[in-house]
Amino acid sequence: MAEQVALSRTQVCGILREELFQGDAFHQSDTHIFIIMGASGDLAKKKIYPTIWWLFRDGLLPENTFIVGYARSRLTVADIRKQSEPFFKATPEEKLKLEDFFARNSYVAGQYDDAASYQRLNSHMNALHLGSQANRLFYLALPPTVYEAVTKNIHESCMSQIGWNRIIVEKPFGRDLQSSDRLSNHISSLFREDQIYRIDHYLGKEMVQNLMVLRFANRIFGPIWNRDNIACVILTFKEPFGTEGRGGYFDEFGIIRDVMQNHLLQMLCLVAMEKPASTNSDDVRDEKVKVLKCISEVQANNVVLGQYVGNPDGEGEATKGYLDDPTVPRGSTTATFAAVVLYVENERWDGVPFILRCGKALNERKAEVRLQFHDVAGDIFHQQCKRNELVIRVQPNEAVYTKMMTKKPGMFFNPEESELDLTYGNRYKNVKLPDAYERLILDVFCGSQMHFVRSDELREAWRIFTPLLHQIELEKPKPIPYIYGSRGPTEADELMKRVGFQYEGTYKWVNP
């Protein structure tokens, strides 16, 4: 592979701008107003304001973009700056750019259920340069409990009458099928589907988006991507930290609602779906819905739930269990780990287990898709061969690698495990991989909904998990304890083995 010439960040961002501006969906010269509902909250200060700053800094926003914060707290732009700027990672050389960014910011205080507050917000936006005809993007960085009041008031008082209007809704989209349907029906009564952007930030990850290209742009994968060759698929999300004093919020939802029903299920769809007619948003989402419709409700015998306990040999936070978090209700049975087996009941995947695993306070930070292939028929190497695996590593250190057998150097035919490896950090030294939120917010500006969740996708996802969630809430089974920093409950490994996964433990990928 030829040595790549190092590029400056300015040059890299210039390439990104060229890609972005050559499309006809990006209205570079139009006025846009980006409204952050819930501007005083954690999500706004840690993710949304920093993301908008990065896009502005790199010249990736339309030229005439204004940012308006809205929340109940009586704040000023200076207050917003004070709480969000520490997350910007701005350099001293960017000081003038930073001043320009905050000059485009404003803030309006108001209630979430008060019509007069929204009329005041609308008047404020109209007073901005060309504000009355601007395109408006409303980001709901809010708890779902206020979605209905907020969307109703936005629709009645704050819509642009000339430009387009788009609304970005953060997960969780309800707690179960019934609450999700209620919320979807409410929002759909106010906005068209092409105006609604239900954001799952995992769909903005580079390697998640790469799944489609790997599958449908490489001839070698087509013939082997089926039940005849693939023994099982494992989708993993692991965090090495616990709730760390923020367990009160987590306890309301648990690990299945927080990660599995959305992030992991979306990745499953991209692995299992048929080739779409095109890369058009609805063509892709149509195929994802077909996959979900082929999955039956989760069966309790295919589920393992766990909850982390303190590690007596650990240090600091590792010595504390979930129930030691003062914000967690006493005696909570909320799971911090889950392993679930699903089956896609169609011709391509009949009988292939899709194993979804996620948890907190585990032994490493990792998100990946792992396809394990069947054993080689007619073994001539005296059971020395391990199964081939194709691994798409989402985070950290984005990579695609194939675990395969090669001859060990020497005189004899002794096979050993090795890999074919594409590590993004080595291959793409001159490429700026956008943060997931950067990519998705740019998608909203461009009107691309491919990486957002459609209402029928959402409904099918909740259909699969709601009976299990209701059973857990009714019966309150005690989750299996696992030690902070471990791989999780051993019962999860036993479940995976029972459905056909072979864990060798003899080879570990190392970032080159």
Rank of each mutant, 00 (worst) to 15 (best):
S40W: 04
N105M: 12
T65Y: 06
Q111M: 10
A127S: 10
N185R: 12
I167C: 14
T145W: 02
L137M: 13
I15K: 11
D79M: 10
F26Y: 15
W164G: 08
E239P: 03
N135R: 07
I48M: 06
M159D: 08
F34W: 07
L96G: 12
S180Q: 06
I162Y: 14
N165F: 07
V208G: 01
Y249E: 03
D58H: 11
L16S: 10
I168F: 06
E206C: 08
E156K: 14
R215M: 00
I33R: 01
I256R: 01
Q11K: 11
E148F: 09
I224G: 07
L130Q: 15
Y112R: 01
L96C: 13
Q209R: 01
Q133N: 10
F173V: 06
I52W: 01
W164C: 08
E193M: 00
G242Y: 07
E244I: 12
S29G: 09
T243W: 02
F66G: 04
R182N: 15
D100I: 10
H32Y: 15
I15M: 14
W225M: 05
A44C: 07
H124S: 09
N126M: 14
V12D: 11
L211P: 01
F250H: 02
H129C: 14
W53G: 00
I224C: 13
R120H: 13
L128E: 08
L142G: 00
F216W: 07
A71K: 00
Q161N: 10
N153F: 11
L43R: 02
E99D: 15
E19W: 08
R246W: 02
G163I: 00
G14N: 15
I154S: 05
K47N: 05
N126S: 11
E94T: 07
T31V: 15
R72D: 03
E170Q: 04
H124D: 09
L130K: 10
D114H: 12
K82F: 11
K205H: 01
N165E: 06
E244F: 09
S189F: 09
N185F: 11
H129Q: 14
S117T: 10
L214S: 07
L55A: 13
K95H: 13
F237W: 11
V108P: 04
D100F: 12
Y49S: 00
R227C: 09
F241C: 06
M125P: 02
D113V: 08
R198T: 01
D251H: 04
F87M: 09
W225V: 06
G41E: 00
P172Q: 02
S157C: 15
F253W: 02
Y147R: 01
I255E: 05
D251Q: 05
G254C: 04
G14S: 15
I199T: 08
I196V: 15
G59A: 07
P172A: 03
T76L: 09
C158Y: 03
K89G: 13
F241N: 07
D228S: 12
P62L: 07
R136S: 06
A134T: 15
P62C: 07
Y49C: 00
T65H: 04
I154L: 15
T65W: 07
N122R: 13
Y107W: 09
K205P: 02
S189E: 12
F216M: 02
P172G: 04
A6I: 12
F221Y: 15
A71E: 02
L61E: 03
G174N: 00
L98A: 06
I36C: 04
L98R: 05
P144G: 02
S106L: 12
D24L: 05
L20I: 10
Y139V: 05
D200N: 05
Y112E: 00
R136Y: 14
V150Q: 02
L183E: 01
L16C: 09
R175I: 08
G242D: 05
E170I: 02
L7M: 12
L137W: 05
G131M: 09
H155N: 15
L183D: 02
D30H: 12
S123K: 15
F101D: 00
I220E: 02
F56T: 05
I154E: 03
L98M: 11
A141K: 04
Q83N: 07
A127I: 12
Y249R: 01
E252R: 11
G247Q: 05
R74V: 14
L7D: 14
P144M: 02
A71I: 03
K152V: 11
I168T: 07
R227H: 11
F34P: 04
R219N: 08
K45H: 14
N226D: 12
E170W: 04
S180E: 05
T76D: 14
E170H: 04
E19Y: 13
N185L: 12
A44E: 00
N122A: 15
N218H: 03
G254W: 00
V12W: 15
Y202L: 03
E206L: 07
E63T: 12
A115P: 09
A90K: 08
L61Y: 02
K89M: 10
T76E: 09
I80S: 06
D24E: 11
T151Y: 03
G204W: 02
Q133H: 13
K97S: 09
Y147K: 04
S160M: 07
T51E: 09
G245C: 11
K152L: 15
I167D: 00
R17M: 12
F101P: 01
A115G: 08
T236M: 05
M207H: 04
Q22Y: 14
W53V: 02
V208L: 15
L177Y: 09
V68H: 00
P223F: 04
L190H: 13
F34D: 04
M207W: 05
M159E: 14
L142A: 04
T65S: 10
D79T: 10
W54S: 07
A103L: 12
R219W: 09
S184D: 08
F26A: 10
Q195E: 14
A39N: 02
F56K: 06
F216H: 02
E156A: 15
A25S: 15
G163Q: 04
R104A: 08
E239C: 05
N210I: 00
G59Q: 07
P240K: 06
F87D: 06
N210G: 08
P62H: 08
L130V: 15
N185C: 13
E252M: 12
F101H: 00
L211G: 00
K47L: 06
A25G: 15
F102V: 06
C158D: 05
A134H: 11
G163E: 03
